[in-house]
Amino acid sequence: MTKQTARRAAAALALLAGLGAAAWWWHSAGAAGPLEPLILATNTSYVAMCPVLAAQQQGYFARQGIAAQIQPHTSGKAALQAALQGRAHLATVADIPIMFAVLEQVPVTVVATYFRAERDHGIVGRKDHGVTLPASLKGKRVGVTPGTSSHFVLNAFLNRQHLAAADVAMVHLKPEEFAGALLRGDVDAVSGWEPYLDALLKQLGRNGVMFDTDDLYEIPYNIVGAHGYVRDHQDTIRKLLRALIDGNRYCAEQPQAAQAMTGAVLQSGSDKWRELWPTYRFAVGLDQALLVGLEDQSRWAMANRLAPAGKVPNFLGALDYQPLKAVAPAAVTVIH
């Protein structure tokens, strides 16, 4: 982790701690009874944290009787691991890490999708390393976080260029390592998501090139937990979902305030995500598209030998739609 990244992480942690204290004060000043503690592992390097931040800062968690602690991570995959390892109660994560967890027979449960984005992924490369056109990635070193949406998008992008995964040298990096590796020349390109991509492009200046992958993947961000926790804390999940519904409404209806709140934690050095804000979908639900996506991704994982070949799992077993159905019945459209 660079010094700049460390400073940003420290600032984010301080802000999140302050928001938690404010929520506690809000509840103690106007509501009776103790708050139920809840640790929510969240990718605080991605704009999908907005509804979570809003639920904490605006007092929606506290209103539901929850003392939420936001545990910051730099990827959804890391957040999911924290929840599955018992370091957090629940996590926010995209669909790819969920798919791998199910394939590995890890007892993981999705309770809702709460955010979707179509234009947040891409590939940034160095022109002086010969990365000028999509096809020029052949033979290049490409940084990627394995088992994440950036991994899936890279494979899909290569396939469109009639290239195989073996045609590039994939270098496994954490998202916070993208900038250092690319600027030092340890890799020729990186596959990632905003705001990392735009920040990198600005640092590279005229030497940088970006390939958009807008139509290759829609990222759904979800609330997920270990199966045992979700099964034993149905009332807690319902409270969380009510708070997130309010948080989503805030992010959708108060864009300027929501962007200011998100930017204070994100601290990315890029405003690209602000430009993309109107394209984000802030809504809590569980729909068939999530299942279809998980099935398609599992076929991709098996075909690329990222998972043992076998039968596509029934991903419906990894969904618990009962809490959301109790809170917002119309939001559950998955066939069950």
Rank of each mutant, 00 (worst) to 15 (best):
Ala283Pro: 00
Ala164Gln: 12
Gly130Thr: 13
Pro329His: 11
Leu40Thr: 03
Gly139Asp: 03
Lys138Val: 05
Val190Trp: 15
Gln161Ala: 10
Val102Gly: 08
Arg184Leu: 06
Tyr280Val: 04
Asp215Cys: 02
Gln322Cys: 00
Val230Leu: 07
Ala54Val: 04
Tyr321Thr: 00
Gln69Gly: 01
Lys174Gly: 05
Val230Lys: 02
Gln161Gly: 05
Leu183Asp: 01
Leu200Met: 09
Leu216Phe: 13
Trp26Asp: 10
Ala328Pro: 00
Ala11Phe: 08
Gln57Ile: 00
Val224Ile: 12
Ala6Glu: 15
Asp296Cys: 01
Leu291Gly: 04
Ala112Met: 11
Ala29Asn: 08
Arg242Met: 05
Arg249Pro: 02
Asp167Pro: 08
Pro175Phe: 06
Gly18Arg: 08
Val131Ser: 10
Cys251Pro: 01
Leu16Tyr: 14
Ile245His: 09
Gln256Cys: 00
His121Phe: 15
Ala169Asn: 10
Arg160His: 04
Tyr250Leu: 03
Thr74Leu: 09
Leu16Trp: 15
Asp128Ile: 02
Thr2Lys: 00
Ser270Thr: 09
Ala243Glu: 10
Leu173Tyr: 11
Pro255Val: 09
Leu266Thr: 09
Leu240Val: 09
Met261Gln: 13
Arg116Glu: 14
Ala307Tyr: 12
Ala166Glu: 13
Asp320Trp: 00
Lys3Gln: 11
Glu295Arg: 14
Ala17His: 13
Gln57Asn: 12
Ala189Ile: 10
Arg119His: 11
Val144Gly: 07
Leu103His: 05
Tyr250Arg: 00
His73Lys: 08
Leu294Phe: 13
Leu19Phe: 13
Leu40Lys: 03
His233Trp: 02
Leu84Tyr: 14
Val153Leu: 07
Val224Met: 05
Gly86Gln: 13
Leu200Asp: 09
Met210Phe: 08
Leu90Gln: 10
Trp24His: 06
Ala181Pro: 06
Ala23Tyr: 08
Ala9Asp: 15
Asn155Lys: 13
Ala156Phe: 06
Glu194Trp: 06
Asp212Gly: 06
Glu218Phe: 07
Ser268Thr: 06
Arg160Ser: 07
Asn248Gly: 14
Asn222Tyr: 03
Ala31Arg: 15
Ala67His: 14
Val102Asp: 07
Gly130Ile: 14
Phe178Asn: 12
Asp246Ser: 14
Ala10Asp: 15
Leu324Cys: 04
Ile123Tyr: 14
Ala164Ser: 10
Val52Arg: 04
Ala54His: 09
Val230Asn: 03
Asp215His: 15
Val110Asp: 06
Thr109Lys: 14
Thr333Cys: 01
Leu286Tyr: 08
Ile70Glu: 08
Ala331Phe: 09
Ala307Asp: 06
Val187Gln: 04
Thr236Met: 11
Glu118His: 05
Thr236Pro: 02
Ile245Cys: 03
Ile98Asn: 11
Leu133Cys: 00
Val168Lys: 10
Lys325Gln: 11
Leu319Lys: 04
Leu90Ile: 12
Leu103Pro: 01
Gly20Leu: 02
Gly293Val: 04
Thr109Asp: 01
Leu319Val: 15
Ala243Phe: 09
Tyr114Met: 04
Trp277Lys: 01
Phe100Ile: 07
Leu154Glu: 14
Ala14Gly: 11
Gly143Lys: 07
Gln322Gly: 00
Met49Leu: 08
Asn43Met: 07
